[in-house]
Structure formats: C-alpha cells, structure tokens
Nucleic acid binder design. Structure first.
Lengths: 289, 289
DNA sequence: AATTAGGGTCAGGAAAGTTAAGCCATGCCC
DNA sequence: GGGCATGGCTTAACTTTCCTGACCCTAATT
C-alpha cells in the first residue's frame, strides 16, 4: 500500500459515511442498501478512503469483507458521530416540516392495518401528512429516516394491538371445515415471512395435520386469495379484523392462539407533546381518544 | 421477496455541512473558504437544502446573509454533530497515519521560527513527518485539520516562547542610529499584519518619532529587507534571534519591550503520551529535551 | 460616481453514481 | 469429486450531479 501523499485536504464526507455504514452492517451490499446507493459506489468510497489513508480498512475476502484492526478502531467513533448527525438532521427536518410524519412498518401491517385507519386520521388531523414506508424489518432507530416505527415485538415501545392467530377463510370454504383435521383436505395458504404461523397454531391447539398450499411473499396477497376462496389462511387478528367484520372472511374454528408479541410503536426521537408525530402516535395507540 | 427500497431520501450530507459552516461563520464566503470550495458551491448547497426543506434557512440581504429562526434553531445541533465527526475523522487519520503531524502557524513563525528548528526535530525523530501550514489566523481547534497550532496569544495552550519588540537593522545601518530620534531619518520597515508594532514600542519607550518606510505583507520579507540594509524593522524577538546570533542583524537600541503575548501551542485533541504529535509538541516547548 | 463586499447565475468540465458484466471462493448436487 | 449455481465484491463504460470560473447584481462605503 503506497504511503499517503501530503493530504492536507479533509477526508471526503460521503466516503466516511459509506465506510461507517459498511463497518456497522458488516457488508458493502447492506451499507449500499441503507444509503440508497449501489454496492459499486460503496466499493469506490471505501477504496478512496483507504487510498487517502494509505492503509486498509477492510480485508477483502472471497465472500464478504472483514474489518481490519484499524477499521475496527475507527468505526465506533464514526458511528457515534453519524448518529449525532442523523439526530440533528431529523431535528432540522422536524423543525422545517412540522406536519410531516413518516412511519415505517411491515408491508402487511401497512396494507391491512394502517391503511384502513388513515382516512380517520386524516379526518381528525387533516393538516398532518403521513407517509408510510414498508420495510421487512424494523429500522435502526438512531439512524432511521422515520419518525415512528410499528413492528411486531414482544416488548419495547408502546403496545398498539396484541397479535393472535386463528385460521380464516371465505364463508363458502368454511362449510367444508367441520374439525381441524379437515384442514388436510383444503389448500392452506401461508406467507413466507410468517412461515411458522401454522406450526404455532397447530401446536397450541394440539393437533398434527399435514398440509400444503401456496406460499405467498406478501401477506396481503394471501389475504386476498383467502377472500377469493383459494384456501385457508392463518390469520393475524389485527390484520384480518376488517374482513371478519365485513363477513368476507370467517373464522371456521373457535381456537384462537394469543401470541406473546403485539404490534408495537417506537418513536425515533422523544415525542414533543402536541407535535404531529405525537398526534399520530396517540391516534394509533388510542384511536378513540 | 424484498419490498420496494425506501423512497425516502435523506438530506444531502455535503449540503448540511455547507449550511453548518455558513451558519457558524455567518457568511457564505467564509464557509466556502473553510470548506475549500467556491462561494457559488455554498450558495447552491444552501439553496438545495432550503428547497428540500421547503423553508428558508437564511435571509438574503444585499450584503451578506442572516440566519432565519429556523436556521438558527437547526445550526447548533448540527455544529455539535459535525464537531464530533471532525473528531472521529481526526482520530481515524491519527490511527492510519500515526507519524503525521500537521502544524498550523503564522507565515512569519513558520518561516522564521519553526523552519529553522525542523532539522533538529527531524534528527531527533526522523520517523515523524511534520507538515506546516501557514495561516493568517488560528484555526477553529475543534474543526481544524491540524494537530498542533502555534499562534501568538496572551493566554491558553502552552507557552512556547515570549514575544518582545525591539528595532533591528543591518550592522552598517546601525552606525547611523545614535538615539531613537534618529529613526526619523531612516526608512522604517513594517509588516501589514503587525502594523502597530512601531506604535507599541515607541509608546513604551516614551518617544514620538515621525516615520515612514515600506510596508510588507510578509514579515519574513521585511526581515530579509532589513538584512539587506533597506531600513529598520521592528523585530519580534523569537523571529529575529537567528539573525542576531549570526550578526546579520543588530539591535541598535537597548530598549526591549516585552509583549503580554507569546507564541503559544495548542493541540486540537488531547495528546496521547508518546504520540507523534506529543513528541513534536514537547520538542517545540522544550527543545533540549 | 466609483469602489468594494457579498451573493446569485450560468455554461462547461470534473467527479460522483449507475448499470451490467466479471471474478472467485463457497456450498450444493448429482 | 467435478460441475454448477450463489453471494458478495470489483471493474468498466456511461450518465448524472456537482463544482468551478467568470460574470452580474445590489447596497454600503469612499
């Protein structure tokens, strides 16, 4: 590695951020995803930084990278500094756009739980602009671009609604289901990210039924298919409540299994009383109040 | 299947930095100088940020800009965050280039005091690479790119050498100076950034002598001219000591005026014992060891 | 009236990022 | 165990963005 030429210029900010993200996530691709750029850009940034410093920050391996001692030593302080910067950025945004609230949640929750509630929220506080981002996993709260984050968890945040499992299907299909064992004779829909739902419910009710059926990658799609009579879906209480009310889905069995987890709401930063984010949070937790 | 990537975009880092520098310095021009870009770039960055936020950060006035309430509210936290980032950056650099020490000082001190000492420093610690930057004013320590900063001041830092004033000139010229009043008959050299030197000395010795002579913008140039016999210069003790020793300059009058200030050394960050920066600092303060 | 100081604007050019292909170990599979 | 697919980083050409440099504008100063 060549010794650095007299670099009296400061280290490039974006390269530092790319390095920090790569160090924290442990992979260039993850860092790229977090920063919203392509992996090639992260490669270039880290490389530029290493050339500038005249020392390697990562060991390149065939599959992935690993921090060098230097990289490890430098990453911690950088992470702290960028956390502070993210906080300052969020505050600036909150000051400039006090009516913007950005919520992160699971795609299923966004579509099946949050979306139906938005009209009422808009009616209650029309000046607030709520934007929803669907993410597969809860974002890093310190670094997130969101104000609120609604995800299933067993603890933390504020409980919005408890989750429970029970099979649901179209009314026509329910007629063919007299007992749990009948599930073996109909398609059982499942969602790839909640793959264990059926196991959990069956184990809780003490039954063993061999089942098969299509697997969906979007829970909302599985719900639609269930409504269309394509099969029986393991329903998450809060996500199928609307269809149950309207009668487009019914619950063929009485056994409901409460899950230890519920949908819980976190805020990225302390909510100031009366702020738009606080209003939205309160609405989601206590829609009536 | 992954859900669509976050359409949320974060505020551009470089624009935030430009805004922070402009807010802290109070002027786009100064911010541009600090960042090493042109004022136009700062204009564009701040403008982009304001458009992104949908709110003004500065009030544009015919002559200069002034922070809006929003800008003022946002600037403080940003400054703190960027200070933290600068600290992390400096630490990264120190880890990667442990033998680099960067010193900021006045041009006159660089040329007339520091430069003559560098050979001895190199001999004492040949592995350390010292780079010197001449600045007209002491840099912001928290944000500086330098490790050490050597500037005249009345307090703070570590005292390296006291400053005192007394006229100096070439030996041949000294013969024509019997008393202070004779200064009126010879050119009196002065430096534009130390314009008050003559006043200070004359007032201290209780004389009033009308004088004129060329004004230099570089003190080192004035010293060279004095050596060449072009006139009498108000010498700063530490900066003319070498010439006095070699006899290329002499002090025609006995009156020496000690200044309340001396050359003082600051370090941007706490010096770790044994670090290259600490070695250089110790050498400058106590050259004998 | 002329000068100066500070921002704003615009065309052109340098340096980001993107897209798509390439590498290279690992792990799977027959 | 060789063949083959996979995951992750890299590379190269292209595109977009950002910076520069020269100019204009306004208000305060000389």
């Amino acid at each position: 590695m060549p010794v650095a030429p007299p670099p009296l210029t400061r280290l490039p900010l974006n390269a530092l951020r790319a390095f920090e993200a790569a160090a924290r996530t442990g992979a260039f691709t993850l860092a790229a995803a977090e920063l919203g750029v392509t992996p090639g850009a992260v490669t270039a940034h880290v490389k530029a930084l290493e050339e500038r410093l005249g020392a390697a920050l990562f060991e390149r391996q065939a599959r992935g990278v690993r921090l060098t001692a230097l990289g490890l030593a430098a990453a911690g302080e950088l992470t702290g500094a960028f956390d502070a910067l993210a906080g300052a950025e969020a505050r600036l945004r909150a000051l400039a756009l006090p009516r913007e609230v950005r919520v992160a949640t699971l795609p299923a929750i966004a579509q099946l739980w949050l979306s139906p509630r938005l009209p009422a929220l808009r009616a209650a506080a029309p000046e607030i602009s709520v934007s929803i981002t669907a993410l597969e996993a809860a974002p890093n709260l310190k670094r997130s671009l969101h104000d609120l984050s609604l995800f299933p968890a067993e603890s933390g945040g504020r409980l919005v609604v408890k989750d429970e499992l029970f099979p649901v299907c179209a009314p026509a299909l329910a007629d063919r289901l007299a007992c749990v064992a009948d599930l073996g004779g109909v398609p059982c829909l499942s969602d790839s990210s909640w793959a264990r739902d059926w196991d959990i419910w069956l184990q809780a009710v003490g039954e063993i039924v061999p089942m098969r059926g299509p697997v969906f990658s979007l829970y909302a799609l599985a719900v639609e298919e269930a409504v269309n009579g394509a099969g029986v879906l393991m329903g998450h209480g809060p996500l199928v409540a609307g269809h149950l009310e309207r009668g487009t889905l019914v619950s063929p069995f009485s056994q409901r299994v409460g899950l230890p987890e519920g949908f819980r709401l976190w805020s990225a930063r302390p909510l100031r009383k009366g702020s738009a984010a606080a209003q939205v949070a309160n609405f989601l937790v206590e829609p009536l109040g």
